[in-house]
Amino acid sequence: MANHSSTHPAHVQHHFVDSEQQFDSAKMGMWVFIVNEVLFFGGLFCAYIVFRTWYPDLFTQAATQLDTFWGAVNTVVLIGSSLTVAMAIRSAQKNQQRGLEINLLITIALACVFLVIKYFEYSHKIHIGILPGAENYTFEGIDHPLAHVFFGIYYIMTGVHGLHVIVGIGLMLWIYFRARKGEFGSEYYTPVEITGLYWHLVDLIWIFLFPLLYLIE
């Protein structure tokens, strides 16, 4: 700030005074976006809470159809990916080019594992007739007239979360290719940090989805 005539480093956009201001702005912008995401999923959680208070039996009965084991495995997978993305940021801060690339790749791989497990969970349900929507729902193993409502909520919550995972994979690939060009280092790693924040948010949401959907008893 004090010295205005200092030349801008290449990564600083013209309307920022310095790198610091750009980094702070980007990070704050991401946090404001996280506020958005919390309220976006908040709507779904609100619907969940309302229906759970109305029909507690429905939730205990229907949750037996969800596989706790694979849900728990997916939780561990996402936690692992959060850890590697944190390591990736650390590598960038420390100028460790190889560490950055490897950690990003592991994160992408774990995210894909999550989606694969989710795919098998979905296809099993679809196979036995648990489909979203009252008309499509044909499963008869749950003795409750509103069983399809639970699975409607389940599909939308996990589906929207899954979309966030897919977006995350896309972002991570983009960061990975930029990292390979050597764009990031201790001087400039803002996109890595910002994408990391997003990825942790995806993890955060799953941390709540897992007990609320899979561990009802």
Binding site: P132, G133, A134, H148, V149, G152, I156
Partner: peptide
């Protein structure tokens, strides 16, 4: 949209 498309029942 989901309600109209699939009839999820919310």
């Amino acid at each position: 949209i989901m309600e109209r498309w699939l009839g999820i029942g919310i």
